[in-house]
Design a protein around this nucleic acid. Structure first.
Lengths: 340, 340
DNA sequence: ATTTATTACGAAACCGTTGTAGTTTTGAAT
DNA sequence: ATTCAAAACTACAACGGTTTCGTAATAAAT
């Protein structure tokens, strides 16, 4: 800008104001400056601007892993609205580690972000790192994996209902001994999905037996934990006739495991799971799946966050948006030999 | 920092230097300052620092879509090294649109990035936007989809060889009329894979017939283009007995299409494709796939870029790293009724 | 006691913008 | 001709750090 001012025989202030279209500058001068700037294709330094007005126009996103069907779709949603509103997104993966999540947060705040989108790791039980941040005035929006201790906008799916519906489907389809493999009990999504599962069993007069409920503390990140959960289920005196898996990674790993073990789905054991893969239809067998509106979740989360970030007044009233899932019934849960 | 200086009765310079561990500051004063800073948990404003030394410690990534098995794995790789070296990644999706790619680039440079990682869109034929950027001194590294016109570090897989091996496998397996559905001919990956395909045919005395080669100008982003390519193939006087698909999206879409159409794989038609989905093994049927070292590609690209960014001297010598793929042979390409 | 190094610290410029508070110019009204 | 307001432009501080250069204090050497 200094150079422009010099070249045009004007002051730096004039150039700055012309570019910001200030009323103080005459049309002729503006045109002169704008034209010159075009020609030189100069772009103002956003860092200087950020420094000046204390906004970085970027938002942080903390989640377990980019490389995951569900979250990559969420990211796509976040990106779509962030992009349209001129925000960059800075992604940090916690890889389901609490320690890493702490580092991420520390890193992100030392990066000057205007707001933060968070889905906590499976290991996270202590939320002070987030609460502290919020106290310092950083707008935070939680998505997917919520935490009660933090009061802010939250975007979730109706986990209980989704899980309930899914389980009811299994029961209606004739399965009697249904196992549930879910993620870490630390997570809201796990407890809610488990609650929906239990509710369906109870309402249909089926026993709720803890032996048939398995937790994967790393959310299926470690294949072993899924494998051992299944193995334990299969070794029960009365093995389950259906498995309901509560997350993307667990679902796909279970499918792989059963396939490798030569266990026929649904003849030997039925399988239904949460997953957002577009391939559910063409899996072997086609998989009954509960899909989440991941893209929309990302969009809403970003929208709500940017709302907070750009709000003139401190926001005190927060809302929790609840999205609905879809149950896609396919061959993996069809009892008997009737195939499509 | 001003507050710290005031609180401790020191000058701002002293505080700054102490925090940067300058030799000019005595151990006692350093300790005093560091302790106080810890207690107040102050973090230096990175924007101010960026402004001072002209580095933003962030790198831009331009690719078609986050929400894609292959690219999300690449991103994971990029993130892993960027993170470890203290860089943020700023992702921009071009959604296979040239126009969008231009906007992305414009947006990114107005964002102050230290370097750029690019995999061009299917539509991109003109590379001046990138060349201009490079001329202005921005380090660029290309990955996956390369462009000859740009002289810089590049990371690719051995597309020709991968495709050649795959095709040879099909031929050895007994298929005679092999179709190839690939992405836009604008892309290096398309032409190279096509070349490998043709090479294998020629070497095995099979005719190369353009009727069996179909291009999807949007890389399979639009399901329709894949569907119509397949339909055209099936409507040929002599339909192919095998299809070789050259990208993730095309592969999965083809599988879906054939399944929906009730066409049996591999009995009616065999299918082999590039894809990085972990689900290939559990698809219906298990899919013969060519997988790419996506994570490694991301890592290398980020490494090479950061090397350029941090290089003291302008780099003139560039290299192209070529990675190898893996061919996983599965049921979808097994001739006859011999299943595993 | 004086000079000379050495160590520890501080003042101020700088990075590239923006906004406040002047200052000059213009032109109209008195 | 004088006054005054509005319009057009400029100087300068500020944003929050880093760094160069200068200076005071201390220690060592003469």
């Amino acid at each position: 800008m200094k150079d422009i001012a010099k070249a045009l025989g004007l002051s730096i202030s004039t150039v700055s104001k012309a570019l910001r279209d200030s009323y103080e500058i005459s049309q002729t001068t503006k045109k002169l400056i704008v034209d010159y700037v075009q020609e030189q294709n100069y772009v103002p330094n956003p860092i200087a601007r950020s420094l000046k007005d204390g906004k970085s126009k970027s938002i942080g996103v903390v989640l377990c892993s980019i490389d995951n069907t569900f979250y990559s779709q969420v990211l796509n949603g976040i990106d779509s609205v962030a992009y349209s509103k001129g925000y960059n997104i800075i992604i940090n993966q916690n890889h389901e580690s609490y320690e890493r999540e702490l580092l991420n947060i520390k890193h992100l705040i030392s990066t000057s972000i205007d707001g933060l989108l968070v889905s906590v790791s499976t290991e996270t039980k202590d939320y002070t790192h987030l609460i502290e941040l919020q106290k310092k005035g950083l707008p935070i929006v939680l998505f997917d994996r919520l935490v009660e201790e933090i009061n802010t906008h939250k975007i979730k799916i109706d986990n209980l209902q989704a899980s309930y519906e899914g389980t009811v489907h299994l029961i209606k389809a004739g399965f009697k001994t249904i196992a549930h493999i879910t993620s870490s009990p630390n997570l809201s999504i796990s407890t809610e999905r488990l609650a929906g599962f239990k509710k369906a069993l109870t309402e249909n007069n089926l026993p709720v037996n803890d032996e048939y409920i398995k937790f994967c503390d790393h959310g299926g990140m470690v294949a072993d934990e899924v494998d051992s959960a299944i193995t334990q289920l299969l070794n029960l005196a009365q093995p389950p006739d259906a498995i309901f898996t509560a997350s993307d990674r667990i679902t796909t790993r279970t499918l792989s495991f059963l396939n490798i073990a030569g266990i026929k789905i649904p003849e030997d054991i039925a399988l239904m799971g949460f997953t957002n893969t577009a391939l559910a239809e063409v899996l072997n067998p086609p998989l009954t799946s509960i899909t989440q509106p991941a893209f929309e979740m990302g969009q809403l989360a970003a929208q709500k966050l940017i709302e907070l970030v750009e709000s003139k007044y401190p926001v005190e009233e927060f809302e929790t948006l609840v999205l609905n899932t879809e149950l896609h019934i396919r061959k993996s849960t069809s009892k008997g030999k009737i195939f499509t």
